[in-house]
Amino acid sequence: MHSKSLVLIALFTAIIVVLGLIPPIMVAFIPVPIHAQSLGVLMAGIVLGARGGALSALLLIVLVAIGLPVLSGGRGGLAVFLSPTAGYLVGYLPTAWATGWLSERVALKAGGGWKTFAGLLAAAVVGVIVTHVFGVAWLITYVGLSPRDALVGDLIFVPGDLIKAGIAAYVGQFVLQNFGSRLRMQ
């Protein structure tokens, strides 16, 4: 791996951490404040692609494991992996990979504008679904919730995450179009 790729991955992890530190964003028509950390994970996939995005998410998971308070609300440490919501955190890895894999194909094919945005949005929505699948699976297997209870509890967070997918696609497209040529992973 070139030093440039290593640095891009680490810098994106730093961006994800900072997005978790900033105050949650209130969106007018949703009752719960949404924090921007998972937004960062989706953007990592869109901007860095499958491999870079997944490594960025993996680096975040490693930072949590070694005890740094890098998650929103200052959470960190091994206890996070034994908490009810650990599935969402671990899901960040496949999320960034899936979003990145799809984005790479979109960015190649679509010629910019609305088509690219729609493609990146679809990639980010798939990413959101992957996160939630991992989150719900953990709630069922580890916490022991029934599938119905787990799903209902999970659904509260879906609208906020879909908005984040939209923001990630918009910002991701902007970054790729203005800066994309300098971000290639080697």
Binding site: H2, S3, K4, L6, V7, L8, L11, F12, A14, I15, V18, L19, A36, L39, M43, V47, I167, V171, F174, V175, N178, F179, R182, L183
Partner: peptide, 16 residues
């Protein structure tokens, strides 16, 4: 978010 992301990634060349 966009300026923060671009500004941050711009320093990647220097750091590398």
């Amino acid at each position: 978010i966009a300026p923060m992301v671009i500004g941050t990634l711009k320093s990647a060349d220097d750091i590398a």
